[in-house]
């Protein structure tokens, strides 16, 4: 799985950590009725965008 994440992150030009963290958080929210994950994802994307853009 980890290896596949690396491959896909590279292929689609995203940090592998973003993919890993997003999956981890989704996993923790799996049983919630209201995951509220979209704002969290936007937050994460913004953070990684900042980091990448320096």
């Amino acid at each position: 799985m980890e290896q596949q994440l690396q491959v896909l992150a590279q292929k689609h030009g995203i940090p592998v950590a973003l993919l890993q963290e997003a999956i981890k958080e989704e996993r923790e929210r799996i049983v919630r009725q209201n995951r509220r994950m979209t704002p969290r994802l936007k937050e994460m994307i913004a953070q990684y965008a900042d980091v990448s853009q320096g």
Partner: peptide, 17 residues
């Protein structure tokens, strides 16, 4: 625009995953 690109990349990667 960069965030959109990251989001799209994340989406595509997730679909393939």
């Amino acid at each position: 625009a960069y965030q959109v690109r990251l989001a799209r990349g994340l989406l595509e990667a997730t679909k393939e995953l």
